[in-house]
């Protein structure tokens, strides 16, 4: 009795993604907060470190930590509309592949992170970074993109767990940060040489490979367990 009209996984994911982006455009609740948080953190680092400019591993550490904590704001809010406005039930009622929700939410978070970095990275270059960004940008973008995939996949998984709990604002960071730690170490280690004054501008292959492997492992893991997180 299966309904032939039921859309496939990707069409469903795109429908959910489109709805999420529309909701964010209407409410402007998540991305502006992430951007503001990142900019304020750079200012705090600027004065807290007592240095006009930073570079190398220190710069990579500051950038990674700032983007991580800004991302946590987005992760915590990822399923809020679904929980508070019945979106979960509406989705679960539909004859669709439930993995589409994981894909859509991860893509939405990826878009949020891309917009955040579009503003935060140049701001970091202006406020804190010693060496000019120009030639370093491709290497940095590659490392950040791989880091964003880890943040998006693990963040979606953690957010789906946390949203069903009363202490969801705590569960997100408590469960998410340890899971993200290896990926963030790889991002910081990968970006360090890129941001060094005399660096080559290219990230070390070893850390890029670790990051890519981590992305693949958690994407597969999330795919395997996500359905169970939606079960009653």
């Amino acid at each position: 009795m299966r309904d032939e009209r039921a859309p496939g996984m990707w069409r469903t994911a795109l429908a959910v993604l489109r709805k999420d982006l529309l909701l964010e455009l209407r409410g402007l609740e998540t991305v502006p907060a992430m951007i503001l948080f990142a900019l304020v953190t750079f200012v705090i680092f600027h004065f807290g470190l007592g240095r006009d400019t930073i570079d190398g591993q220190l710069a990579a550490g500051v950038l990674t930590a700032t983007l991580l904590f800004a991302a946590m704001l987005g992760i915590n809010r990822l399923f809020v509309a679904e929980r508070e406005q019945g979106g979960f039930d509406a989705f679960l009622l539909a004859p669709v592949d439930r993995t589409a929700l994981l894909v859509a939410k991860a893509l939405a978070l990826l878009v949020f992170l891309a917009v955040l970095e579009l503003i935060a990275v140049p701001a970091f270059g202006l406020l804190l970074l010693g060496p000019p960004l120009g030639s370093r940008l491709p290497g940095l973008v590659a490392v950040l993109a791989l880091g964003d995939v880890a943040l998006a996949v693990i963040g979606t998984l953690v957010s789906a767990i946390a949203v069903h709990t009363r202490a969801r604002d705590l569960i997100g960071p408590i469960v998410g940060l340890p899971l993200l730690l290896p990926a963030l170490i790889a991002v910081a280690r990968g970006a360090g040489p890129v941001l060094a004054v005399h660096g080559s501008g290219a990230p070390p292959g070893r850390w890029v490979a670790i990051l890519a492997l981590y992305d693949v492992v958690f994407a597969l893991l999330s795919y395997a367990v996500f359905d169970f997180l939606l079960e009653d």
Binding site: D3, A6, R26, Q85, G86, D89, L93
Partner: peptide, 17 residues
């Protein structure tokens, strides 16, 4: 699921849309 329609206490509609 394709053959079920649920009208419950919650309208299952996004308020900002």
């Amino acid at each position: 699921r394709a053959h079920l329609g649920l009208l419950g206490h919650d309208p299952l509609l996004y308020r900002d849309l």
